[in-house]
Write a protein that binds this DNA or RNA. Structure first.
Lengths: 346, 346
DNA sequence: GTGAAAGCGCTAACAG
DNA sequence: CTGTTAGCGCTTTCAC
């Protein structure tokens, strides 16, 4: 653990001033070949690496960006991290990572502390409206993902309304008449998903039941299952808040003797990689999580670079339906007042 | 984006010296109530928050720890991150995150840069032996996870040998006689897993076939499947490098008409959460990924704090067999030279 | 081209 | 108890 050489050591060894070394390192200026060679030699000999902290203090740039997410164990967020990390790396940036789940209470303190160590922030949590202003007050570029941001602040998300609407159309087309949404109200996109679904069903003259899950995880999906499956008027299709919930739900449904999709269709949202491997394979909507992370990071770098188109507004990523085997065409028991196939334009 | 107040502003407003403010902030000293009140007031009025970079430069402590992993999309690593994050948070530390997959080539440069911004490092990648010394040369505390480290450096992993041995015992006991290992040679634990398995089988007088997968992912498991399943002498059980590979393998096997576990048993390693939800549910060995992350981080903090028991050596976490439905008892076709059920002690 | 000097915001002796 | 004084390692005018 020998002491790290400083710029001063290099300057001494090369027989030049520290200013010269600094300029050489940052290639802010060229020098005579002889000088450059000497500096280079000194650097290599000493194995000098400049101290990023000291540099940051002066330049105000840290070379890191922060990403705050809800729960790294949810593949949706994992993919966001993957995507943002890729782009950050391309720009030579490090990723500072905050998993909020562990510490919702202190989220803003954490973010405040974080904001001092990074050049910008991607926030992808359930943070209440009021806090957003506070985060913006940190004075660092921010992009919000998963929700619209205040005017002038870039944000990006999937079109949750469209996603849910899509699912509704599919289910209706397949002949389901008794559709339920197993939602998670505290989550940001829940409202939009609910709205997309109910708008769609309403247009077809169909009702929508709503159930609630305690959290957006597999375990919560498992726990919620019985309460919807054991009802007299149980739905013939349930749209789950996300794939995790759907996976848990399906597992318990099966164990309770309800077969999917024969007795009941199940659909998730997110298109996590494992959805292909459940049994039956999960029908879902792809929310392009990884791309979301990438684009969010690009948006952030655009801000950091300062070339901000005046008001980007909110960017929507297009959802894509992934039809698999957890949904099936239902033979209509009675074709009572089937509304005509008129689509309302979004 | 108004300018951040500095300690000087606070001192001026409170009518004391900056040293006093500094000591107050770090609670390195108490002052008269009047002074403390004035400082506190000034801080709140100005919304002052000390600049961690400036502090770091002097104290040499950054308040961040780095975690380098292979691929955040593999739940095994996701859980490691989850675990280390939890512990880091408890200690008031931030997590700087490096996903090596994206950048294997520059791994050491990346780590070197990272090492300057953190107080310690957890390295959980495939980094070649030689590089480990280099990483240690950064002069920061390091703990290696997933492999033994050079003498004196703490490291932690699951007991891969024991894990594989366990699986071997199970399969033999279930009557499998034709066992294959679908390994991934470049991975660190591969050798130990192979050894554990083959030692076990050898003790029972059984052979071990070996196949190779191109990577440790689901897709690679899918791709490798046909080459082992379409053989004349196809195994009656295959042990996969990890759960991801096993999941891919099972899916393709099914689609190729080989039913699991009736025609062939499949077992994974890691016990990722989704293993419960494949069909059939995956038999595997729990490698306690989250705990691994936690313990690694604890080890790191012990080093950072400086109270290092002389030589911790390598810590092994105990694997646990998770018997599920992808393995089944096999009726022995011919009971030729069945070795007696003698167990060799590990 | 090159170097001297003035800090970035903060902490750590050391005086008083 | 409180303040003064040096820097941490580096970048950045601004002279030479």
């Amino acid at each position: 653990m020998k002491k790290k050489p400083t710029i001063r050591d290099v300057a001494a060894k090369a027989g030049v001033s520290i200013a010269t070394v600094s300029k050489f390192i940052n290639s802010t200026q060229r020098f005579t070949a002889a000088v450059e060679r000497k500096i280079q030699a000194a650097i290599e000999e000493l194995e000098y690496h400049s101290n990023p902290l000291a540099r940051s203090m002066i330049t105000g740039k840290t070379g890191s960006v922060g990403v705050a997410i809800l729960d790294i164990c949810n593949p949706h967020f994992t993919n966001i991290v993957k995507g943002s990390n890729r782009v950050a790396l391309e720009h030579g940036y490090n990723l500072l990572f905050v998993d909020t789940e562990e510490s919702q209470a202190h989220e803003d303190e954490l973010l405040e502390a974080l904001s001092r160590r990074v050049d910008g922030l991607i926030v992808s949590t359930r943070m209440p409206e009021e806090h957003m202003e506070k985060v913006l007050g940190f004075g660092k570029p921010v992009v919000f993902s998963g929700r619209p941001a205040p005017a002038g602040i870039p944000s990006i998300s999937i079109d949750a309304y469209a996603a849910a609407h899509m699912i509704g159309e599919l289910l209706v087309k397949q002949g389901h008449r008794n559709i339920a949404y197993l939602g998670f109200a505290p989550a940001r996109p829940d409202k939009e998903r609910m709205r997309g679904l109910s708008d769609c069903l309403e247009a077809h003259g169909l009702p929508l039941m709503r159930f609630e899950v305690r959290g957006p995880t597999i375990v919560d999906g498992e726990q919620a299952c019985s309460s919807v499956i054991l009802r007299k008027d149980k739905p013939d299709a349930v749209v789950c808040y996300n794939d995790m919930v759907a996976i848990g739900f399906m597992a318990v449904a099966k164990s309770l003797g309800v077969s999917i999709p024969e007795d009941m269709s199940v659909v998730g949202i997110d298109n996590i990689p494992f959805g292909r491997f459940t049994s039956p394979a999960l029908t879902t909507v792809d929310t392009q999580s990884e791309r979301l992370g990438e684009e969010a990071m690009r948006l952030l770098f655009r801000q950091i670079a300062g070339d901000n188109p005046p008001d980007i507004g909110h960017i929507f990523l297009e959802p894509r339906l992934m039809m698999r085997d957890s949904t099936a065409v239902r033979a209509l028991p009675q074709r009572e007042s089937a509304t005509p196939r008129l689509r309302k334009r979004a």
